[in-house]
Simulated assay, not measured.
Amino acid sequence: MTAKSTIEQQLDHRTIRAFTKQPVAPAIIEQLVSVARHTATSNFQQAFSVISVTDPAKKEQIAAIAKQPYVAANGHLFVFVADQHRDQQIGAEMGKTENHLGGTDRFLQAWSDTTLAVQNTEVAAESLGLGTVILGSILNDTQQLIDILALPQLTFPVLGLAIGWPDQKPQLKPRLPERFVHFENTYQLPAPLRPQLAEYDAVVHQYYDLRDTNRRVDTFTNQVKARLALQPEKRAEMLTVLHRQGFLLE
């Protein structure tokens, strides 16, 4: 694939939530995991793991956490996990019990390694014609997810990724104009902000009004406002769960 076609593919990214009944071949899953393994990593620590969730009962449980039934439907489900447990095991087996693996620095390294692996895997999957949906919704109840996946200390789930052969082609969702996300040398958000977002709000309004499914009246700034004070109950417990897993205790 040329650089140009890769860019075109990424600019045409659409979240796919409906997959055909055609399974994703094991060879493709192996290839995608290989792509994840070859992702750039902080300090060569490779501080993430990938769990393929193939047990239908577990998929149903995770779909319930995510409040998205399609997670349990057709397609292959990955859960990407920030993982400092592996390094702890290596150190213990080499007689090194003191470590800072639960500290903020090492946690953020693991988190960034994991999210980079998710993005790499998504790009690779789409290059093969697969559809994808990244699932931040698995964090709606992190403790339950940790229990379902039997995650040990010094691990934490970051994102899910469902892939499959697309059974839909949704409209391309409009993104913020460049001037609101790309600055030079210093942070330079234009002010006052909302009036300058009016044109983008109109584009988003039209997108929601004309798209094929789940039409509604909405804008970008209205969505931002609605989410400012929104926090699902179990997400409010996330720091407590991080502490239970051995992270951010410093």
Rank of each mutant, 00 (worst) to 15 (best):
A3I: 05
T6Q: 14
I7G: 12
Q9I: 06
Q10D: 07
Q10S: 07
Q10F: 09
R14A: 13
R14G: 10
R17S: 03
A18I: 04
F19D: 01
T20A: 04
T20E: 03
V24Q: 05
P26L: 04
A27L: 04
A27T: 06
I28K: 08
I28Y: 13
S34Q: 06
V35M: 04
H38F: 11
S42R: 09
S42K: 01
N43G: 11
F44E: 01
Q46T: 04
F48H: 05
V50P: 00
I51H: 12
V53N: 00
T54V: 05
P56D: 02
P56L: 04
A57G: 00
K58H: 07
K58V: 01
Q61F: 00
V71I: 09
A72Y: 00
N74A: 09
N74F: 06
H76I: 00
H76R: 02
F78R: 03
Q89K: 11
I90C: 01
I90D: 05
G91Y: 09
M94H: 13
E98Q: 14
E98P: 01
H100C: 13
L101I: 05
G102H: 11
G103S: 15
L108I: 10
T114S: 04
A117K: 04
V118E: 10
Q119T: 10
S127C: 03
L130H: 09
G136R: 02
L139P: 00
L139K: 07
N140Q: 09
Q143S: 07
Q144L: 10
I148S: 11
I148T: 08
I148W: 11
L149N: 02
L151Y: 05
P152N: 02
P152I: 00
L154K: 03
L154Y: 11
T155F: 06
T155I: 03
F156R: 02
F156V: 01
P157K: 05
V158E: 12
L159C: 13
L159Y: 14
G160V: 00
G160M: 04
G164C: 01
G164P: 05
W165H: 14
W165I: 00
D167N: 11
D167C: 00
Q168F: 06
K169N: 14
P170T: 03
Q171D: 14
Q171L: 14
L172E: 09
P174D: 06
P174L: 09
R175A: 12
P177S: 03
E178F: 10
E178Y: 10
E178K: 14
F183N: 10
T186W: 08
Y187M: 10
Y187R: 04
Q188H: 12
L189C: 11
P192L: 06
L193W: 04
L197R: 04
A198V: 06
Y200Q: 05
Y200F: 13
V203F: 07
V203D: 07
H205C: 07
Q206T: 14
Y207I: 08
L210Y: 11
L210E: 15
N214G: 07
R216W: 03
D218S: 09
D218M: 09
D218L: 09
T219I: 02
Q223A: 08
A226Y: 01
A229T: 10
L230F: 09
P232T: 02
E233D: 07
R235F: 01
A236G: 15
A236C: 06
M238K: 12
M238N: 14
R244L: 13
Q245N: 12
G246I: 08
L248M: 15
E250V: 06
